[in-house]
Write a protein that binds this DNA or RNA. Structure first.
Lengths: 197, 197, 197, 197
DNA sequence: TATGAATGAGCGTTCATTCAT
DNA sequence: TATGAATGAACGCTCATTCAT
């Protein structure tokens, strides 16, 4: 489904994916020429087509790989925590540090690849849904343990994921701290009047 | 930067902008042909170039106009409320109803505007900053009145604005209610155990 | 079906068709670049696509026009004759003189456009079938009048059409005379022994 | 011109020619990829270039070989007959059965060989001339024996060769019989009125 | 001012050919 | 000798932009 079968040089495929990440991140899909990706990888234009059937597939595979890598790193780190509260805190921390280590990821966020075509759009939405469900499950377990109050876990998950955008430019991660944001999400904005009673 | 000087027919310029909004929203930038915009506006293709120097400028001007209109509508409605709490609630409600009235706005979010130039990008960031500050001011006043607890108003504002994304697809506004989200943001996720003590 | 609807300049369409005839005849389909046809017509490459949707359609329309013109000339001249025998003689004469007036037609014969695609192939075969049937009808009428002996009219028609190839290079029309060929076809090769009795 | 000198494995060269025949016949020149020919021959793509300098040369050599083989088979069979009349009848029969045994030969006719260079074209014309002369000689001898009436032997030969096209699609060999065609050629179309007298 | 016919730069993809192994 | 991974020239088609009217 993704590539043309068995390829001679798995390293080259990887190299092309990395170049695709670099160039698509910087310029978006339509503005990127296949030849640019090839040049970035130090290979000929035709070689790209030995590993990917089309520019579109190249983008899809690159995104797949990035998302997989991103989510697997995230999930692995989350798995090391047991406390739902800690999990979410860790998630923010990891997310922010990933963005800092890899500024191109920020750019990647700023592009919207949904427009490539409808199939692509639905694939992206599925991926996002998956991520939301993963976070929602964490929240559910927090509700079970009583650490979180009963709430719409999916909404909370969607909110948390949306809130990651807070760390994108122009409010880079230098502006706000993870702790502040987590505190805000966990305790809310309102003065807990009744609680004080 | 935006137009070629003074045009005799400001109404025609406006009509082109509206058509650009309609078509770009539905099909994205790259997929839209200038001729389609012209047809939608009921004019000839060449006429577009009497009012805008390029397709790209047309998009930028359209985005500028839409954002200005959106923010001014929002700010005006907010001005009608006095209570900070109510203001924020109202903001969500207006946002969601705007999206519902104008589904194209939703689409607008889903397209690739990567080609924006630096000038436009900085304008965009200024506008966003403005909006954040506007919301932050509301929050500040809420803190003054004691309705909100002391918190980083700018962060809260950024969070609120980010959270608007919750109502975009695939979690359309039908999935979540404004009230749920407001409740979550205002009261937080955690069970307020200690507070109850 | 053939063009994109109403075109501004019918003369230009005709000019393109003529250029297509000139270039396709000389170089065949695959070897011909659309830009060459455009250059021959003294127009830009893109202009070709205002009148024809694709290179393939351009070929089809050109062939259609040529065949139509060729057959209509032929049929018209044939209509002026009443005697089946004379009709066939005239057909040869016209065919040969057309080839002489228009050497590109010779080239056109030497290319085989059937391979363009299956649809094209069947269209060509239909055209040829039409032509065969037209000739066969003439022969049938000759049989009715008793000028021709009872024979498979369709086979005779196919033979006659095939025999036109005799005048193609390397045996150009200068080698053989129409009269000789007609005589041969009409009286056969064998010494008419029994007739001598 | 044809190969790169002496090759160790003449059998492999032959094998490649046969594969070229099989694939070019079926798909035409432009549609055939060199790799397909190589695969059909069970060798690597690069190996083809050890025996032929280019795809085009491969085609020319294949055509040469097929034509030579076809003509030599035909001439050999003809040599077995002594009667001119019988020879021609046999020629048709052989031709048709060759086409039936080897449907690819039919296909070979249907493709565009326009790109042949002048050298090849002249070789082709020489071969054709040769064939015509061969048939013409048969006819001459028939005239000598009085079986054929005095006629332009070369024209008759050209006609006979052209008439072979009658058995190509769309009028496949199933439509017409060899006997019918031979009868037509030998006795002509006209009712032999005067002979009846 | 307004038009839309004309233009040609631009790009994704293919595949004949090369060459390192 | 044989291979097949790598290459890049080539081309059909699109569409933003221009300009004669």
């Amino acid at each position: 489904m993704s590539d043309n079968g068995i390829h001679p040089d798995a390293g080259k495929r990887q190299k092309i994916l990395e170049s695709a990440f670099a160039v698509f991140s910087q310029k978006g899909y339509q503005q990127t020429k296949v030849e640019e990706v090839a040049q970035h990888a130090g290979i000929g234009k035709g070689t790209v087509y030995l590993y990917f059937t089309s520019k579109e597939e190249l983008l899809r595979e690159m995104l797949k790989a990035m998302i997989k890598k991103y989510l697997s790193e995230l999930k692995q780190k989350l798995a090391e925590e047991t406390d739902p509260w800690a999990k979410l805190k860790v998630m923010y921390t990891i997310h922010v540090s990933l963005l800092q280590e890899n500024p191109s990821l920020v750019q990647l966020h700023l592009h919207d690849f949904a427009f490539v075509n409808d199939q692509f759009r639905s694939w992206l939405e599925t991926e996002k849904e998956d991520f939301v469900n993963h976070i929602a499950a964490i929240i559910e377990s927090g509700i079970q343990t009583g650490q979180f109050r009963p709430l719409n876990a999916k909404l909370a998950a969607a909110l948390i994921i949306s809130s990651l955008g807070v760390f994108l430019p122009p409010h880079s991660s230098e502006c706000f701290s993870v702790d502040e944001l987590v505190d805000l999400l966990f305790h809310g904005m309102s003065r807990r009047v009744s609680a004080q009673a």
